[in-house]
Design a binder for these strands. Structure first.
Lengths: 234, 234
DNA sequence: ACTTGACATGAACACTGTTCACACTTAGGA
DNA sequence: TCCTAAGTGTGAACAGTGTTCATGTCAAGT
Protein backbone atom coordinates (compact mmCIF):
# COMPACT_ATOMS: atom_id res chain seq x y z
CA UNK A 1 0.00 0.00 0.00
CA UNK A 2 2.84 2.40 0.79
CA UNK A 3 4.96 4.05 -1.88
CA UNK A 4 7.01 1.45 -3.74
CA UNK A 5 10.69 2.09 -3.37
CA UNK A 6 12.34 0.44 -6.29
CA UNK A 7 11.24 0.48 -9.91
CA UNK A 8 10.78 -3.25 -9.72
CA UNK A 9 8.25 -2.99 -6.96
CA UNK A 10 6.37 -0.33 -8.85
CA UNK A 11 6.06 -2.28 -12.06
CA UNK A 12 5.04 -5.26 -10.01
CA UNK A 13 2.28 -3.30 -8.36
CA UNK A 14 1.09 -1.99 -11.70
CA UNK A 15 1.08 -5.47 -13.16
CA UNK A 16 -0.91 -6.81 -10.23
CA UNK A 17 -3.44 -4.03 -10.61
CA UNK A 18 -3.69 -4.64 -14.33
CA UNK A 19 -4.34 -8.34 -13.86
CA UNK A 20 -7.00 -7.56 -11.29
CA UNK A 21 -8.63 -5.02 -13.59
CA UNK A 22 -8.83 -7.46 -16.49
CA UNK A 23 -10.11 -10.21 -14.22
CA UNK A 24 -12.73 -7.84 -12.93
CA UNK A 25 -13.90 -7.07 -16.44
CA UNK A 26 -14.22 -10.75 -17.19
CA UNK A 27 -16.24 -11.37 -14.06
CA UNK A 28 -18.44 -8.37 -14.74
CA UNK A 29 -19.16 -9.58 -18.25
CA UNK A 30 -19.53 -13.33 -17.89
CA UNK A 31 -19.62 -14.09 -14.19
CA UNK A 32 -17.20 -15.71 -11.81
CA UNK A 33 -17.78 -19.25 -13.05
CA UNK A 34 -16.37 -18.36 -16.45
CA UNK A 35 -13.23 -16.76 -15.06
CA UNK A 36 -10.26 -18.26 -16.88
CA UNK A 37 -6.61 -17.65 -16.16
CA UNK A 38 -5.67 -18.43 -19.74
CA UNK A 39 -8.10 -15.95 -21.21
CA UNK A 40 -6.81 -13.28 -18.86
CA UNK A 41 -3.29 -14.12 -19.97
CA UNK A 42 -4.38 -13.82 -23.60
CA UNK A 43 -5.87 -10.39 -22.99
CA UNK A 44 -2.63 -9.32 -21.35
CA UNK A 45 -0.55 -11.00 -24.06
CA UNK A 46 1.51 -13.08 -21.74
CA UNK A 47 1.97 -16.72 -20.86
CA UNK A 48 -0.58 -18.24 -18.48
CA UNK A 49 2.15 -19.39 -16.17
CA UNK A 50 3.34 -15.82 -15.74
CA UNK A 51 0.23 -15.02 -13.76
CA UNK A 52 1.49 -17.30 -11.01
CA UNK A 53 4.13 -14.71 -10.15
CA UNK A 54 1.30 -12.44 -8.96
CA UNK A 55 -1.43 -14.77 -7.73
CA UNK A 56 -0.88 -18.33 -6.73
CA UNK A 57 -3.72 -19.85 -8.66
CA UNK A 58 -7.24 -19.19 -9.78
CA UNK A 59 -8.73 -19.42 -6.31
CA UNK A 60 -6.37 -16.78 -4.97
CA UNK A 61 -7.27 -14.45 -7.82
CA UNK A 62 -10.95 -15.04 -7.15
CA UNK A 63 -10.42 -14.32 -3.47
CA UNK A 64 -8.78 -11.04 -4.39
CA UNK A 65 -11.76 -10.21 -6.58
CA UNK A 66 -14.16 -11.02 -3.76
CA UNK A 67 -12.19 -8.80 -1.45
CA UNK A 68 -12.21 -6.01 -4.02
CA UNK A 69 -15.97 -6.34 -4.40
CA UNK A 70 -16.41 -6.10 -0.65
CA UNK A 71 -14.30 -2.99 -0.59
CA UNK A 72 -16.16 -1.37 -3.46
CA UNK A 73 -19.53 -2.04 -1.88
CA UNK A 74 -18.32 -0.82 1.49
CA UNK A 75 -17.06 2.41 -0.07
CA UNK A 76 -20.43 2.96 -1.65
CA UNK A 77 -22.27 2.33 1.58
CA UNK A 78 -20.05 4.69 3.53
CA UNK A 79 -20.41 7.37 0.90
CA UNK A 80 -24.19 7.13 1.18
CA UNK A 81 -24.05 7.23 4.96
CA UNK A 82 -21.76 10.24 5.02
CA UNK A 83 -23.86 12.71 3.08
CA UNK A 84 -25.07 15.45 5.37
CA UNK A 85 -28.80 15.45 5.82
CA UNK A 86 -30.59 18.29 4.05
CA UNK A 87 -32.42 20.70 6.29
CA UNK A 88 -35.56 19.16 7.65
CA UNK A 89 -34.87 15.68 6.39
CA UNK A 90 -35.80 13.00 8.85
CA UNK A 91 -33.71 10.17 10.20
CA UNK A 92 -35.65 7.65 8.14
CA UNK A 93 -34.94 9.42 4.86
CA UNK A 94 -31.28 9.62 5.77
CA UNK A 95 -31.13 5.96 6.67
CA UNK A 96 -32.86 4.89 3.48
CA UNK A 97 -30.07 6.36 1.40
CA UNK A 98 -27.79 3.53 2.53
CA UNK A 99 -29.83 0.49 1.41
CA UNK A 100 -30.67 2.43 -1.72
CA UNK A 101 -26.97 2.78 -2.44
CA UNK A 102 -26.50 -0.95 -1.87
CA UNK A 103 -29.19 -1.75 -4.41
CA UNK A 104 -27.81 0.69 -6.95
CA UNK A 105 -24.39 -0.87 -6.61
CA UNK A 106 -25.83 -4.38 -6.92
CA UNK A 107 -27.66 -3.51 -10.11
CA UNK A 108 -24.54 -1.92 -11.55
CA UNK A 109 -22.35 -4.90 -10.62
CA UNK A 110 -24.65 -7.91 -10.39
CA UNK A 111 -21.91 -10.50 -10.68
CA UNK A 112 -19.90 -8.80 -7.95
CA UNK A 113 -22.98 -8.88 -5.76
CA UNK A 114 -23.15 -12.59 -6.42
CA UNK A 115 -19.52 -12.88 -5.42
CA UNK A 116 -20.41 -11.52 -2.00
CA UNK A 117 -23.93 -12.74 -1.28
CA UNK A 118 -24.35 -15.59 -3.75
CA UNK A 119 -23.29 -19.21 -3.58
CA UNK A 120 -19.91 -19.45 -1.89
CA UNK A 121 -17.07 -20.60 -4.13
CA UNK A 122 -16.03 -24.24 -3.79
CA UNK A 123 -12.70 -23.52 -2.12
CA UNK A 124 -14.23 -20.89 0.17
CA UNK A 125 -13.54 -17.21 0.34
CA UNK A 126 -11.01 -15.50 2.52
CA UNK A 127 -12.73 -15.36 5.88
CA UNK A 128 -10.40 -13.06 7.76
CA UNK A 129 -9.94 -10.17 5.38
CA UNK A 130 -13.63 -9.89 4.56
CA UNK A 131 -14.80 -9.13 8.08
CA UNK A 132 -13.37 -5.62 7.90
CA UNK A 133 -15.27 -4.43 4.78
CA UNK A 134 -18.32 -6.38 5.90
CA UNK A 135 -18.26 -4.48 9.16
CA UNK A 136 -17.93 -1.22 7.25
CA UNK A 137 -21.07 -2.00 5.28
CA UNK A 138 -23.10 -2.86 8.32
CA UNK A 139 -21.71 0.09 10.21
CA UNK A 140 -22.85 2.43 7.48
CA UNK A 141 -26.31 1.00 7.79
CA UNK A 142 -26.25 1.33 11.53
CA UNK A 143 -24.81 4.80 11.94
CA UNK A 144 -28.02 6.75 11.22
CA UNK A 145 -29.84 4.58 13.73
CA UNK A 146 -27.31 5.25 16.45
CA UNK A 147 -27.29 8.96 15.79
CA UNK A 148 -31.06 9.11 15.93
CA UNK A 149 -30.96 7.21 19.20
CA UNK A 150 -28.32 9.52 20.61
CA UNK A 151 -30.50 12.48 19.72
CA UNK A 152 -33.44 10.85 21.43
CA UNK A 153 -35.45 10.70 18.24
CA UNK A 154 -35.79 6.94 17.96
CA UNK A 155 -39.33 5.67 18.46
CA UNK A 156 -40.28 2.44 20.11
CA UNK A 157 -41.33 0.12 17.34
CA UNK A 158 -44.50 -1.92 17.20
CA UNK A 159 -42.85 -5.32 17.25
CA UNK A 160 -40.66 -4.75 20.26
CA UNK A 161 -41.91 -7.19 22.80
CA UNK A 162 -39.93 -8.72 25.58
CA UNK A 163 -36.83 -10.48 24.34
CA UNK A 164 -35.77 -13.85 25.59
CA UNK A 165 -32.36 -14.32 27.10
CA UNK A 166 -31.64 -16.85 24.35
CA UNK A 167 -32.26 -14.26 21.66
CA UNK A 168 -30.29 -11.62 23.48
CA UNK A 169 -27.31 -13.97 23.64
CA UNK A 170 -27.72 -14.90 20.00
CA UNK A 171 -27.11 -11.35 18.83
CA UNK A 172 -24.61 -10.46 21.54
CA UNK A 173 -21.64 -10.00 19.18
CA UNK A 174 -23.59 -7.49 17.15
CA UNK A 175 -24.80 -5.69 20.24
CA UNK A 176 -21.30 -5.37 21.61
CA UNK A 177 -19.57 -4.41 18.39
CA UNK A 178 -22.06 -2.09 16.74
CA UNK A 179 -24.81 -1.13 19.16
CA UNK A 180 -23.39 -0.26 22.55
CA UNK A 181 -26.09 0.93 24.97
CA UNK A 182 -28.93 -0.04 22.64
CA UNK A 183 -31.81 -2.29 23.68
CA UNK A 184 -31.45 -5.80 22.29
CA UNK A 185 -34.85 -5.60 20.66
CA UNK A 186 -33.59 -2.79 18.47
CA UNK A 187 -30.53 -4.79 17.52
CA UNK A 188 -32.72 -7.68 16.44
CA UNK A 189 -34.84 -5.35 14.36
CA UNK A 190 -31.75 -3.91 12.69
CA UNK A 191 -30.43 -7.35 11.75
CA UNK A 192 -33.83 -8.26 10.41
CA UNK A 193 -33.78 -5.12 8.29
CA UNK A 194 -30.34 -6.08 7.03
CA UNK A 195 -31.63 -9.55 6.12
CA UNK A 196 -34.60 -8.08 4.31
CA UNK A 197 -32.42 -5.71 2.32
CA UNK A 198 -30.04 -8.47 1.27
CA UNK A 199 -32.96 -10.73 0.44
CA UNK A 200 -34.81 -8.18 -1.65
CA UNK A 201 -31.71 -7.17 -3.59
CA UNK A 202 -30.62 -10.76 -4.14
CA UNK A 203 -34.05 -11.83 -5.34
CA UNK A 204 -34.04 -8.98 -7.82
CA UNK A 205 -30.44 -9.35 -8.99
CA UNK A 206 -30.66 -13.12 -9.29
CA UNK A 207 -33.75 -12.84 -11.48
CA UNK A 208 -36.50 -14.04 -9.17
CA UNK A 209 -38.77 -11.07 -9.77
CA UNK A 210 -39.38 -12.08 -13.36
CA UNK A 211 -43.10 -11.91 -14.09
CA UNK A 212 -43.70 -11.31 -10.42
CA UNK A 213 -42.79 -7.75 -9.53
CA UNK A 214 -43.08 -5.40 -12.44
CA UNK A 215 -41.47 -2.42 -10.77
CA UNK A 216 -38.67 -3.57 -8.50
CA UNK A 217 -37.58 -0.03 -7.72
CA UNK A 218 -40.97 0.93 -6.34
CA UNK A 219 -41.16 -2.25 -4.33
CA UNK A 220 -37.70 -1.68 -2.92
CA UNK A 221 -38.59 1.85 -1.86
CA UNK A 222 -41.68 0.58 -0.10
CA UNK A 223 -39.64 -2.11 1.62
CA UNK A 224 -37.02 0.18 3.07
CA UNK A 225 -39.82 2.53 4.18
CA UNK A 226 -41.40 -0.34 6.06
CA UNK A 227 -38.09 -1.31 7.60
CA UNK A 228 -37.26 2.22 8.70
CA UNK A 229 -40.68 2.44 10.27
CA UNK A 230 -40.21 -0.89 11.98
CA UNK A 231 -36.89 0.20 13.49
CA UNK A 232 -38.48 3.37 14.78
CA UNK A 233 -36.85 5.94 12.52
CA UNK A 234 -38.93 8.93 11.59
CA UNK B 1 -44.14 -40.08 -15.91
CA UNK B 2 -46.68 -42.67 -17.02
CA UNK B 3 -46.00 -46.40 -16.93
CA UNK B 4 -43.25 -47.30 -19.38
CA UNK B 5 -44.52 -49.71 -22.02
CA UNK B 6 -41.48 -51.48 -23.30
CA UNK B 7 -38.54 -52.85 -21.34
CA UNK B 8 -36.31 -50.40 -23.15
CA UNK B 9 -38.24 -47.46 -21.88
CA UNK B 10 -38.13 -48.80 -18.38
CA UNK B 11 -34.41 -49.34 -18.27
CA UNK B 12 -33.97 -45.92 -19.79
CA UNK B 13 -36.04 -44.37 -17.06
CA UNK B 14 -34.06 -46.20 -14.41
CA UNK B 15 -30.81 -45.13 -15.97
CA UNK B 16 -31.92 -41.51 -16.09
CA UNK B 17 -32.93 -41.64 -12.46
CA UNK B 18 -29.65 -43.24 -11.50
CA UNK B 19 -27.63 -40.57 -13.26
CA UNK B 20 -29.67 -37.90 -11.56
CA UNK B 21 -29.19 -39.54 -8.18
CA UNK B 22 -25.43 -39.73 -8.56
CA UNK B 23 -25.28 -36.16 -9.83
CA UNK B 24 -27.33 -35.07 -6.86
CA UNK B 25 -24.91 -36.73 -4.48
CA UNK B 26 -22.01 -34.97 -6.12
CA UNK B 27 -23.73 -31.59 -5.86
CA UNK B 28 -24.70 -32.25 -2.26
CA UNK B 29 -21.14 -33.12 -1.37
CA UNK B 30 -19.04 -30.65 -3.34
CA UNK B 31 -21.40 -28.09 -4.79
CA UNK B 32 -22.61 -27.38 -8.28
CA UNK B 33 -19.38 -25.80 -9.47
CA UNK B 34 -17.53 -29.09 -9.03
CA UNK B 35 -20.09 -31.14 -10.93
CA UNK B 36 -18.24 -33.20 -13.53
CA UNK B 37 -19.75 -35.40 -16.18
CA UNK B 38 -16.67 -37.57 -16.27
CA UNK B 39 -16.69 -38.26 -12.56
CA UNK B 40 -20.36 -39.17 -12.73
CA UNK B 41 -19.55 -41.54 -15.57
CA UNK B 42 -16.75 -43.05 -13.48
CA UNK B 43 -19.11 -43.65 -10.57
CA UNK B 44 -21.55 -45.33 -12.94
CA UNK B 45 -18.76 -47.25 -14.69
CA UNK B 46 -19.60 -46.10 -18.15
CA UNK B 47 -18.09 -43.93 -20.83
CA UNK B 48 -18.58 -40.17 -20.43
CA UNK B 49 -20.08 -39.95 -23.87
CA UNK B 50 -22.83 -42.37 -22.87
CA UNK B 51 -24.32 -39.71 -20.62
CA UNK B 52 -25.22 -37.73 -23.69
CA UNK B 53 -27.89 -40.28 -24.52
CA UNK B 54 -29.76 -39.09 -21.43
CA UNK B 55 -28.86 -35.44 -21.00
CA UNK B 56 -27.52 -33.30 -23.75
CA UNK B 57 -24.64 -31.78 -21.89
CA UNK B 58 -23.62 -30.59 -18.48
CA UNK B 59 -25.91 -27.57 -18.52
CA UNK B 60 -28.95 -29.73 -19.21
CA UNK B 61 -28.05 -32.03 -16.33
CA UNK B 62 -27.62 -29.03 -14.07
CA UNK B 63 -30.98 -27.69 -15.16
CA UNK B 64 -32.56 -31.00 -14.25
CA UNK B 65 -30.91 -30.81 -10.84
CA UNK B 66 -32.18 -27.28 -10.33
CA UNK B 67 -35.65 -28.40 -11.25
CA UNK B 68 -35.43 -31.33 -8.88
CA UNK B 69 -34.31 -29.03 -6.08
CA UNK B 70 -37.27 -26.76 -6.72
CA UNK B 71 -39.59 -29.72 -6.59
CA UNK B 72 -38.10 -31.05 -3.39
CA UNK B 73 -38.35 -27.70 -1.66
CA UNK B 74 -41.90 -27.18 -2.89
CA UNK B 75 -42.91 -30.60 -1.57
CA UNK B 76 -41.49 -29.70 1.81
CA UNK B 77 -43.28 -26.36 1.89
CA UNK B 78 -46.59 -27.91 0.95
CA UNK B 79 -46.20 -30.61 3.53
CA UNK B 80 -45.65 -27.98 6.22
CA UNK B 81 -48.63 -25.98 5.03
CA UNK B 82 -50.92 -28.99 4.96
CA UNK B 83 -50.61 -30.10 8.57
CA UNK B 84 -53.87 -29.52 10.38
CA UNK B 85 -53.61 -26.95 13.09
CA UNK B 86 -53.76 -28.37 16.60
CA UNK B 87 -56.68 -27.26 18.69
CA UNK B 88 -56.29 -23.69 19.79
CA UNK B 89 -53.24 -22.96 17.68
CA UNK B 90 -53.29 -19.53 16.14
CA UNK B 91 -52.92 -18.55 12.52
CA UNK B 92 -49.46 -17.16 13.21
CA UNK B 93 -48.16 -20.42 14.64
CA UNK B 94 -49.58 -22.28 11.70
CA UNK B 95 -48.00 -19.91 9.21
CA UNK B 96 -44.61 -20.05 10.88
CA UNK B 97 -44.40 -23.78 10.20
CA UNK B 98 -43.87 -23.03 6.51
CA UNK B 99 -40.80 -20.76 6.68
CA UNK B 100 -39.45 -23.07 9.37
CA UNK B 101 -39.71 -25.96 6.94
CA UNK B 102 -37.92 -23.92 4.29
CA UNK B 103 -35.03 -23.27 6.66
CA UNK B 104 -34.83 -26.89 7.76
CA UNK B 105 -34.68 -27.99 4.14
CA UNK B 106 -32.03 -25.37 3.34
CA UNK B 107 -29.81 -26.51 6.21
CA UNK B 108 -30.20 -30.13 5.14
CA UNK B 109 -29.41 -29.37 1.48
CA UNK B 110 -27.35 -26.17 1.46
CA UNK B 111 -25.96 -26.66 -2.03
CA UNK B 112 -29.44 -27.27 -3.40
CA UNK B 113 -30.59 -24.07 -1.75
CA UNK B 114 -27.73 -22.34 -3.55
CA UNK B 115 -28.91 -23.88 -6.78
CA UNK B 116 -32.23 -22.10 -6.35
CA UNK B 117 -31.46 -18.86 -4.57
CA UNK B 118 -27.73 -18.46 -5.14
CA UNK B 119 -25.79 -17.07 -8.04
CA UNK B 120 -27.45 -18.10 -11.29
CA UNK B 121 -25.46 -20.51 -13.42
CA UNK B 122 -23.62 -19.04 -16.41
CA UNK B 123 -25.91 -20.52 -19.03
CA UNK B 124 -29.04 -19.67 -17.00
CA UNK B 125 -31.57 -22.01 -15.53
CA UNK B 126 -34.70 -23.27 -17.19
CA UNK B 127 -37.10 -20.38 -16.79
CA UNK B 128 -40.35 -21.99 -17.82
CA UNK B 129 -40.41 -25.18 -15.81
CA UNK B 130 -39.35 -23.50 -12.58
CA UNK B 131 -42.33 -21.18 -12.31
CA UNK B 132 -44.61 -24.05 -11.35
CA UNK B 133 -42.66 -25.28 -8.28
CA UNK B 134 -41.81 -21.70 -7.40
CA UNK B 135 -45.51 -20.91 -7.34
CA UNK B 136 -46.12 -23.95 -5.16
CA UNK B 137 -43.61 -22.70 -2.59
CA UNK B 138 -45.08 -19.23 -2.45
CA UNK B 139 -48.59 -20.62 -2.39
CA UNK B 140 -47.78 -22.71 0.63
CA UNK B 141 -46.56 -19.61 2.36
CA UNK B 142 -49.63 -17.70 1.37
CA UNK B 143 -52.33 -20.22 2.14
CA UNK B 144 -52.50 -19.68 5.91
CA UNK B 145 -52.77 -15.95 5.32
CA UNK B 146 -55.67 -16.33 2.94
CA UNK B 147 -57.47 -18.72 5.23
CA UNK B 148 -57.09 -16.35 8.16
CA UNK B 149 -58.41 -13.54 6.01
CA UNK B 150 -61.36 -15.63 4.88
CA UNK B 151 -62.21 -16.38 8.50
CA UNK B 152 -62.00 -12.70 9.31
CA UNK B 153 -59.13 -13.20 11.74
CA UNK B 154 -56.52 -11.11 9.94
CA UNK B 155 -55.54 -7.94 11.79
CA UNK B 156 -54.64 -4.67 10.21
CA UNK B 157 -50.90 -4.34 10.52
CA UNK B 158 -49.02 -1.37 11.83
CA UNK B 159 -47.22 -0.53 8.60
CA UNK B 160 -50.23 -0.49 6.34
CA UNK B 161 -50.48 3.04 5.14
CA UNK B 162 -51.99 4.20 1.92
CA UNK B 163 -50.39 2.53 -1.07
CA UNK B 164 -49.43 4.40 -4.19
CA UNK B 165 -50.84 3.39 -7.52
CA UNK B 166 -47.28 2.73 -8.68
CA UNK B 167 -46.72 0.21 -5.93
CA UNK B 168 -50.07 -1.42 -6.47
CA UNK B 169 -49.24 -1.91 -10.14
CA UNK B 170 -45.80 -3.21 -9.28
CA UNK B 171 -47.20 -6.16 -7.37
CA UNK B 172 -50.24 -6.66 -9.59
CA UNK B 173 -49.19 -10.12 -10.89
CA UNK B 174 -48.88 -11.40 -7.34
CA UNK B 175 -52.19 -9.86 -6.33
CA UNK B 176 -53.98 -11.43 -9.25
CA UNK B 177 -52.40 -14.86 -9.07
CA UNK B 178 -52.17 -15.48 -5.34
CA UNK B 179 -54.17 -12.90 -3.42
CA UNK B 180 -57.56 -12.34 -5.02
CA UNK B 181 -59.70 -9.91 -3.02
CA UNK B 182 -56.86 -8.96 -0.67
CA UNK B 183 -55.78 -5.36 -0.06
CA UNK B 184 -52.61 -4.48 -1.92
CA UNK B 185 -50.92 -3.41 1.30
CA UNK B 186 -51.20 -6.97 2.58
CA UNK B 187 -49.73 -8.32 -0.60
CA UNK B 188 -46.75 -6.03 -0.25
CA UNK B 189 -46.25 -7.14 3.33
CA UNK B 190 -46.38 -10.78 2.27
CA UNK B 191 -43.74 -10.29 -0.40
CA UNK B 192 -41.59 -8.45 2.08
CA UNK B 193 -41.93 -11.37 4.45
CA UNK B 194 -40.92 -13.71 1.65
CA UNK B 195 -37.86 -11.57 0.95
CA UNK B 196 -36.90 -11.54 4.60
CA UNK B 197 -37.21 -15.29 4.87
CA UNK B 198 -35.07 -15.90 1.80
CA UNK B 199 -32.57 -13.32 3.00
CA UNK B 200 -32.25 -14.74 6.48
CA UNK B 201 -31.89 -18.30 5.27
CA UNK B 202 -29.41 -17.37 2.55
CA UNK B 203 -27.27 -15.35 4.93
CA UNK B 204 -27.15 -18.31 7.30
CA UNK B 205 -26.60 -20.99 4.68
CA UNK B 206 -23.99 -19.00 2.80
CA UNK B 207 -22.00 -18.47 5.98
CA UNK B 208 -22.57 -14.81 6.70
CA UNK B 209 -23.61 -15.34 10.31
CA UNK B 210 -20.13 -16.47 11.26
CA UNK B 211 -19.06 -14.67 14.45
CA UNK B 212 -22.15 -12.53 14.15
CA UNK B 213 -25.19 -14.48 15.21
CA UNK B 214 -24.37 -17.22 17.64
CA UNK B 215 -27.77 -18.88 17.61
CA UNK B 216 -29.25 -18.71 14.11
CA UNK B 217 -32.22 -20.85 15.07
CA UNK B 218 -33.33 -18.48 17.79
CA UNK B 219 -32.86 -15.50 15.53
CA UNK B 220 -34.86 -17.16 12.76
CA UNK B 221 -37.72 -17.90 15.14
CA UNK B 222 -37.78 -14.29 16.25
CA UNK B 223 -37.74 -13.14 12.66
CA UNK B 224 -40.72 -15.18 11.51
CA UNK B 225 -42.56 -14.07 14.65
CA UNK B 226 -41.96 -10.48 13.68
CA UNK B 227 -43.08 -11.14 10.12
CA UNK B 228 -46.26 -12.92 11.17
CA UNK B 229 -47.04 -10.03 13.45
CA UNK B 230 -46.36 -7.56 10.68
CA UNK B 231 -48.72 -9.34 8.31
CA UNK B 232 -51.41 -9.33 10.94
CA UNK B 233 -51.56 -13.02 11.84
CA UNK B 234 -52.38 -13.88 15.41
C1' DA C 1 31.87 -6.61 -12.93
C1' DC C 2 29.49 -10.23 -11.23
C1' DT C 3 26.26 -12.72 -8.86
C1' DT C 4 21.77 -13.21 -7.21
C1' DG C 5 17.05 -12.90 -7.43
C1' DA C 6 12.84 -11.84 -9.84
C1' DC C 7 10.47 -12.36 -14.05
C1' DA C 8 8.74 -14.53 -18.26
C1' DT C 9 8.49 -18.44 -21.26
C1' DG C 10 6.98 -22.77 -23.55
C1' DA C 11 6.41 -27.43 -22.94
C1' DA C 12 4.23 -30.86 -20.36
C1' DC C 13 0.59 -33.22 -17.32
C1' DA C 14 -3.84 -34.15 -15.80
C1' DC C 15 -8.00 -32.75 -16.02
C1' DT C 16 -12.60 -31.02 -18.22
C1' DG C 17 -16.93 -30.97 -21.86
C1' DT C 18 -18.16 -32.40 -26.29
C1' DT C 19 -18.30 -34.79 -30.87
C1' DC C 20 -18.16 -38.60 -33.84
C1' DA C 21 -17.53 -42.92 -36.29
C1' DC C 22 -18.14 -47.30 -35.01
C1' DA C 23 -20.14 -51.62 -32.89
C1' DC C 24 -23.87 -53.98 -30.62
C1' DT C 25 -28.61 -54.95 -29.04
C1' DT C 26 -33.28 -54.57 -29.19
C1' DA C 27 -37.99 -53.61 -31.16
C1' DG C 28 -41.32 -53.80 -34.68
C1' DG C 29 -42.98 -54.25 -39.44
C1' DA C 30 -42.63 -57.11 -43.97
C1' DT D 1 -39.35 -65.38 -39.50
C1' DC D 2 -36.14 -62.22 -41.16
C1' DC D 3 -34.49 -57.59 -41.51
C1' DT D 4 -34.33 -53.04 -40.96
C1' DA D 5 -34.28 -49.09 -38.19
C1' DA D 6 -33.79 -47.07 -33.86
C1' DG D 7 -31.72 -46.96 -29.45
C1' DT D 8 -27.60 -47.63 -26.72
C1' DG D 9 -22.69 -47.94 -25.42
C1' DT D 10 -17.75 -47.43 -26.71
C1' DG D 11 -13.16 -45.37 -27.45
C1' DA D 12 -10.64 -42.08 -29.77
C1' DA D 13 -10.12 -37.42 -30.72
C1' DC D 14 -10.37 -32.17 -30.20
C1' DA D 15 -10.30 -28.01 -27.82
C1' DG D 16 -10.25 -26.04 -23.72
C1' DT D 17 -8.90 -25.62 -18.64
C1' DG D 18 -5.50 -25.07 -14.12
C1' DT D 19 -1.00 -26.03 -12.69
C1' DT D 20 4.04 -27.26 -12.53
C1' DC D 21 8.71 -26.93 -13.92
C1' DA D 22 13.15 -26.54 -16.26
C1' DT D 23 14.89 -23.16 -18.97
C1' DG D 24 16.24 -18.85 -20.30
C1' DT D 25 16.55 -13.47 -19.70
C1' DC D 26 17.14 -9.24 -17.61
C1' DA D 27 17.75 -5.78 -13.91
C1' DA D 28 19.32 -4.69 -9.45
C1' DG D 29 22.76 -4.90 -5.26
C1' DT D 30 27.22 -5.93 -3.57
Amino acid sequence: MSAPRTARERVREEMTAEILAVARQHVAREGAAALSLRSIARDLEMAPSALYRYFDGRDALLSALILAAYGSLADEAERAAAVVAPEGEGDAARWRAVPRALRTWALAYPHEWGLIFGTPVPGYDAPEETVEPYARIVSALVRPIIEAEAAGRLQTGAHEGAISRELRDAVAPVSDALFPHMPAAKVVLAIQAWSTIVGVISLEVFGHWRNTILNPGAFFEATIRTEADSIGLR
